[in-house]
Simulated scan of single mutants.
Amino acid sequence: MRGRDDEWTDLMRSANAGDSVAYHRLLKSVTPVLRAGARQGLSRAGQPPDQAEDIVQDILLAVHLKRQTWDANAPFAPWLFAIARNKLIDALRRRGRRIFVNIDDFAETIPSEPPAETLPTVEISNHLADLPPRQRDVLRSIAVDSVSIKNTASKLSMTEGAVRVALHRGLASLAAKLRKD
């Protein structure tokens, strides 16, 4: 392990001094190590390792762009692995928390047709008819017609707060009525 670190450090010193062959050898030598580390990091995070190559390319690009910031008196490997760790973290943050599930596993449980309405339209209209006019209009607009609170307020010449109050009271009245029935 120590021999590899010394070799990488020597290659990076030569590369920064202008030796393109040393730079090419360095990149060729670190790439498999970075690829394995990226795959392992993705796997530990519960992510599929198929994105490892993108992370490796990000690491190599960062090394190339920032290579003049490396202290030639320090070992190269810790500097490289700090960049690799940060690029892996960046990639995981971009991906967010995702759980990959094969949809075929649930094909039998997913309904092929939408479920039927729970109450017929006539019955809904009858329940709404028993409400005060403002509550009925607000409920019909929001719950039946799927209009937003903002648009309902504009349509009924009410404030958004008044629409929310009417909606809450209308739902409470309906719930109480349905409990009695």
Rank of each mutant, 00 (worst) to 15 (best):
I110S: 04
P48R: 13
A143W: 04
G41K: 04
L167K: 05
I110C: 09
I142H: 07
D130W: 02
F106K: 00
W79H: 00
D71C: 06
P49S: 09
I59V: 15
L92W: 02
L174S: 07
R4D: 07
E160S: 05
L34W: 03
T9H: 08
L80S: 01
R95I: 04
Q57L: 12
D137N: 13
R169W: 14
R25E: 03
P78S: 08
V33D: 11
A38D: 00
W79C: 03
Y23S: 15
V165S: 13
I149E: 07
A162G: 13
A82K: 12
R140P: 00
H24R: 15
S148V: 02
I89H: 03
R39H: 01
P115Q: 04
S173E: 12
H127Y: 11
V138S: 02
P49G: 09
K180T: 10
K180N: 07
V165T: 15
S146D: 13
R164Q: 12
R13E: 15
A107W: 01
M158K: 07
G161I: 08
Q68G: 11
T152I: 03
S43A: 10
R4Y: 08
L119H: 07
T31F: 05
D104N: 12
V138K: 06
R140G: 01
E117S: 10
D10Y: 07
M12K: 01
V122S: 12
T118F: 08
G37S: 07
M12R: 03
D137L: 10
T31L: 08
G18A: 11
T31H: 06
I110H: 02
E7T: 09
A74R: 11
S141T: 01
A176C: 02
H168R: 12
A38Q: 04
A74E: 12
L26V: 08
D181T: 14
N151E: 13
T31D: 03
R134H: 05
N102D: 15
T121P: 00
K155S: 11
P78I: 09
G18Y: 10
D54R: 03
E53C: 09
R169D: 15
T159D: 08
L131E: 05
L167V: 00
Q57A: 10
R85Q: 10
L61I: 11
I110D: 04
S14Q: 15
L119V: 09
P120G: 01
L92C: 01
D6Q: 15
R164V: 08
N16A: 13
I124M: 02
L174Q: 05
L139N: 03
L34H: 02
Q135L: 02
D50P: 05
Q68P: 02
V33I: 10
L27K: 07
A15K: 03
F76M: 05
A162M: 10
L26W: 08
